[in-house]
């Protein structure tokens, strides 16, 4: 039973759930098997939230949440300054981390990107989700860029004011990120 697992961390209102949904949709459009689900609790803007994505070539049966992920995407680096969320996020044995924030050499197995900067440049808003996905695709090969772009278009089709900027931001993240 093998699938590639992703955990998205962020604060409520930043687009964590949407980012996970877009990745799931991209995998779906590619013909892969997918599971995606958010974690719920008492909700408020700014509360730490998690979303999970599993991608595989075979049917995914296990519906429980992911404790040890292959990739951890942190949309809000400030979560790593708080002890409680820091411990939860870093409690991973095999994950590669992609973090929106300044480079911090203490954190192992991680790469950093100024996703907020790119998002602000093209969206005038700090919604780094799509940018992070662009960078993520450089770290994992399970989803092709063309499908991710298509998924962004489909998901944001009802919000044209966000679509254009995000597509540009996505392209910059994907081409620039190493």
């Amino acid at each position: 039973m093998s699938y590639t697992s992703f955990v998205f961390w962020g604060r409520g209102g930043e687009g964590v759930k949407t980012a996970a949904e877009i990745l799931a949709k991209a995998a779906f459009l590619q013909g892969l098997e997918v599971q995606a689900f958010p974690e719920y609790g008492p909700e408020r803007s700014g509360a730490p939230v998690r979303a999970f994505v599993k991608i595989s070539k075979e049917k995914i049966k296990d519906q429980a949440s992911i404790t040890q992920a292959d990739y951890v995407v942190v949309l809000d680096g400030s979560l790593l300054s708080q002890l409680d969320t820091k411990n939860l996020i870093l409690n991973q044995k095999k994950a590669k981390l992609l973090i929106n924030g300044k480079i911090n050499p203490e954190i192992k197995n991680s790469v950093f990107i100024d996703a907020s900067g790119i998002a602000n440049k093209y969206l005038k808003k700090d919604l780094p989700g799509v940018v992070m996905l662009g960078a993520l695709l450089k770290m994992t090969t399970c989803v092709k860029f063309a499908n991710l772009e298509k998924a962004v278009k489909e998901t944001l089709s009802k919000k044209p004011e966000l679509l254009d900027g995000n597509l540009k931001a996505l392209n910059e993240a994907y081409t620039q990120f190493k």
């Binding site: 949904e21 997918v34 049917k59 519906q63």
Partner: peptide
């Protein structure tokens, strides 16, 4: 159906 696992779980 299971709350959250199935209600909110996106599956193919």
């Amino acid at each position: 159906m299971d709350g959250f696992y199935t209600t909110h779980g996106e599956q193919v």
